[in-house]
Design a protein around this nucleic acid. Structure first.
Lengths: 292, 292
DNA sequence: ACCTGAACACCGTTCAAGT
DNA sequence: ACCTGAACACCGTTCAAGT
């Protein structure tokens, strides 16, 4: 999975997110992380809604090492490390998140990080939860459960697509940090409100989340080694369509016949389609459990 | 080695496309995963080969460096490399699949591999398709489309679960090799047979596949860094349930209330639940498009 | 034609040592 | 208490050289 440093391919079907001013944040201060959520930014502080727990130094988070380095204050804090980790991943991709690279981003040496994280694996776990700090699904709550789940899915997808490799990071992890749980809470509220049993609400939430993360991971990842190496996604898909049409029709009749549909690049439409299937499936469950 | 070598002849004339369909496939939990043509060339000091050697000794293909090394025959072929790659991943995990490690598995040096694969990324693409060599969904075809899709899902999940890290390898790739396509063909056949339009059949197949791979990836991956470090999953889930129950009930009422359901370890039940939702969602579509 | 040795520029992690 | 230097055992990849 170690991609070559040559890749700067935008995920197809997504607005190529050019990162603006993160470089400035690279040195010093920066408790901003990279929040470029497509959602209405608003909010009191920058990182949407204060993250409750964590001993975030109130007010002066990350205000050190700009002018005079305080004697007693450490150069690093867990917060600063996590912010830098997210920023690095969003800017340069998950493969760029190495202990050495992260240290360089922070102006220290790799060995220093081990005071704040046990190892790289735990760093990535923490980063996975950190990704959910910038999104709060409770803001999309509304009476109609279908509308709520639809709005939440769109927000989640937008949020992840705007953060390079985020789904790849998340997909393989079971994230149970405070930020992830805040969003799980919002989903559970909708599904219980829709009349699902406790069991069904929990299972439906699991289904919704694993499906969505899997979908975006597939969407966000490079189509192939060729695309990762620089080929335009559009060209790759066209070539693929041609290859499919050229397959032996006796053995692959449906693949040949549906070559066009299979290689259509409209990921947003596929997302809507899949969500509609899931909601319909949930609806059956709901009306069965609570007919009215 | 590309994702789909149909239009390209491999270095040694082995028609990658014309391979006979896979014996010894999906049933059983055997973690074979290597193909039987081309005997694995065990290095002299293969470390702890706990996995029973798969397969029929193919003939003399892998006999090099044991008896007399043929003068003209190369030590490696693309087939032998791929077999060794799958074997290595299934035995030691995806992280063990390094160019150096794979070379050692084959009794050669890393640099030698670059005659057969362009780089590691393309190796992994080829490995991803190779994973589907051992399963043929057409065997599960039947009249009832629901029964067919259910049987296919179960076969796919079983196949992947039996191959360590397989879903992690696949989830992030768009696999369009001949083995993957054979199984896509089977799914398309069922969905078109159920009365879906071309568009819907293609989209439903995409939904089915991304959901299933995402689900198994979540299931197959380690729950957390703790579990990866050795903690029993059961204990981790119990602790997690405790943590969820101890969360502030004013902010996380549903998480607290459903702590038990959320941490239940019954992945098979969750799989059945999610599949039932999807099938119900497809059914709506089907009867809408083709009422009777 | 095929494989190797050696090199390059990287990794994650540990630990004694500095301040 | 916090960070560094240096080391160890790895990576992927290239390429001149061997056979």
């Amino acid at each position: 999975m170690r991609a070559m440093p040559t890749d700067r391919t935008p995920p197809h079907g997504t607005p190529a997110h050019g990162r603006p001013a993160d470089a400035a944040a690279a040195h010093g201060t920066s408790s901003d992380g990279a929040r470029s959520d497509g959602t209405p930014a608003h909010g009191p502080g920058t990182p949407a809604d204060a993250t409750p727990a964590e001993g975030v130094p109130g007010g002066g988070a990350g205000a050190r090492r700009r002018g005079r380095p305080r004697k007693d204050e450490p150069a690093l804090t867990e917060r600063v490390v996590l912010d830098a980790g997210v920023r690095l991943m969003v800017r340069d991709g998950l493969d760029a998140v190495t202990m050495r690279g992260l240290a360089a981003e922070l102006g220290v040496r790799a060995a220093s990080l081990y005071r704040y994280v046990r190892n790289k694996d735990e760093l990535l776990d923490a980063l996975a939860d950190e990704l959910f700090a910038g999104i709060d699904l409770t803001r999309y709550a509304q009476d109609d459960w279908r509308a709520a789940l639809t709005a939440m899915a769109a927000a989640l997808r937008r949020h992840l697509l705007a953060r390079r490799d985020s789904a790849r990071l998340i997909a393989g992890r079971f994230t149970t940090g405070p930020n992830a749980l805040r969003n799980i809470e919002a989903l559970l509220a909708v599904l219980r409100g829709a009349g699902l049993s406790d069991h069904d609400a929990a299972f439906a939430t699991y289904t919704y989340v694993t499906w969505l993360f899997g979908f975006v991971a597939a969407e966000q990842n490079r189509l192939s080694a060729e695309v990762a190496a620089g080929m335009a996604p559009r060209e790759y898909l066209d070539r693929l369509a041609g290859r499919l049409r050229a397959m032996p029709p006796d053995r692959y009749p449906h693949v040949v016949a549906l070559a066009g549909e299979l290689t259509a690049p409209d990921l947003a439409a596929r997302f809507d389609f899949a969500l509609a299937r899931l909601l319909a499936g949930i609806d059956v469950l709901r009306t069965t459990a609570d007919p009215r």
